[in-house]
Design a protein around this nucleic acid. Structure first.
Lengths: 246, 246
DNA sequence: CGGTGCATTGATCAGAATCAATGATCGTGG
DNA sequence: CCACGATCATTGATTCTGATCAATGCACCG
């Protein structure tokens, strides 16, 4: 194995704790920083500041100047867009290591709010852009991140436009399960830090329909609702068939 | 004005027709090529081949190896994803100058089909990737293209998840109108080269509902249906209010 | 222990889907 | 050039999924 292995799983590096916060960062190996060499990391560190937000706080606001980009280091967030009368569409949930705030124009195209308390790495947009010119592999990585988000967005369009309530809820549980597995964790049980209202606004449903669908899935033995927002998925394969209407 | 003006509108360059197909290309100033200097364009040209497809032909197929990228030089296309039972979600329509085939993985994440006859510039993925390393501004441009698509996808999620049939149809007409204006054309009348079924699969509706909604909008004086798939938008501002449920 | 916010369950309603038929348009060949 | 068939769009009748309105239950926290 090479000294720098891009595929390795995240791990703590307690040896450098305070001297080099980035190197000690828990998500250092999954976040965009993972493509940076030590001296480049130092450079990134110089322009980065760590910020915390508590439950329910708005981190970015649709339409505001997009002066910062963020890396979520701890907690969960939701991204959403609003219609004038208050209808809301959640376009995504973010977990540790996810990137936030890429804006094509000068303004953010969506809002972002903390679910529970969160910690973020904040990078001024201007500075990052000059770093991009200097380190093309960072730009390549960014292109990968955005392409990945686009692919997810297309899956979500299929879900919103063509799936039933039951298929939507099951697809949602499976996507959380897969993302947990991508990070580190077990694919089941899945942890749901967000409210029923958030899930509804993500799936294009109402809270009542989400709740009823959970109840039905439980009755049919497809899921088990635990306390503290945990859901067990006893048969992933069976759920995958439900998810695309097979 | 500088000799190379990146903002200029597309125009024919009949003086170079056959010697240098790229320089003569009608979309040369809107497509990704617009950031390339003449000698870079020559390089791109060397790896590019022009291909034609006729009405209804599949240009790329979800799940197939993503060996090529394309630039649509003429005609209209649709991108879509399918569920196993045949339900279809159209994730976007492409017009002249649009880019096609960016794939994160080795496989295309969606299919693409010609609406009417089309012409495309075909670029082998491998070759383009090495060009990206050589010309960072091309990569930057690509990042812009993908970011733009992501922003559109998020708007579409809001539409699919939270808008009514009427709001969906009006939003669709307005987006076509805006894109026509971006290219060159008048914002009204809007040209609809795609079928009602395509519109339905784009908006998460059925053909019947799309048809009824057109009829209602016509009755209320919000649109005028012309022959040949043209739709007049007599009051764009009024339509914009309908589109967001104001 | 009580209160507040969130989740669940129930009854009814509405918007869009489905099922079905008719009408318009376009391409083709006589 | 017109008639025919095929395809696509429109319109109508009915159904059904998920929304809305309303009430109750549950869990967490001071």
């Amino acid at each position: 194995m090479s000294a720098i292995d891009m595929q390795q799983k995240p791990q703590k590096r307690p040896d450098m704790d305070d001297l080099n916060p980035c190197a000690a960062c828990g998500i250092r190996d999954t976040a965009i920083c993972s493509v940076l060499a030590p001296e480049e990391l130092t450079k990134l560190e110089a322009i980065t500041r760590h910020v915390d937000f508590s439950q329910g706080q708005t981190v970015i606001d649709e339409g505001e100047p997009a002066d910062f980009l963020f890396n979520l280091t701890q907690g969960t967030m939701k991204l959403y867009k609003l219609l004038p009368d208050g209808r809301r569409q959640i376009t995504g949930f973010l977990f540790e290591g996810d990137f936030l705030g890429i804006a094509l124009n000068e303004q953010y195209a969506y809002s972002a709010e903390a679910i529970g308390d969160v910690g973020l790495c904040r990078i001024p947009r201007q500075n990052l852009e000059s770093m991009l010119d200097e380190f093309p592999h960072l730009e390549k990585r960014l292109l990968g991140v955005v392409s990945n988000e686009l692919a997810q967005a297309q899956d979500q369009m299929l879900l919103l436009g063509r799936k039933t309530a039951r298929e939507k809820v099951v697809s949602f549980l499976l996507s959380l399960s897969r993302r947990a597995a991508d990070r580190e964790a077990e694919p089941s049980p899945v942890y749901l830090p967000m409210s029923r209202a958030d899930i509804a606004d993500y799936l294009g449903l109402t809270t009542e329909t989400v709740s009823r669908t959970f109840t039905n899935l439980k009755r049919d033995g497809n899921i088990r609702l635990k306390t503290g927002g945990y859901v067990e998925l006893p048969d992933i394969v069976a759920l995958e068939e439900i998810a695309d209407g097979a």
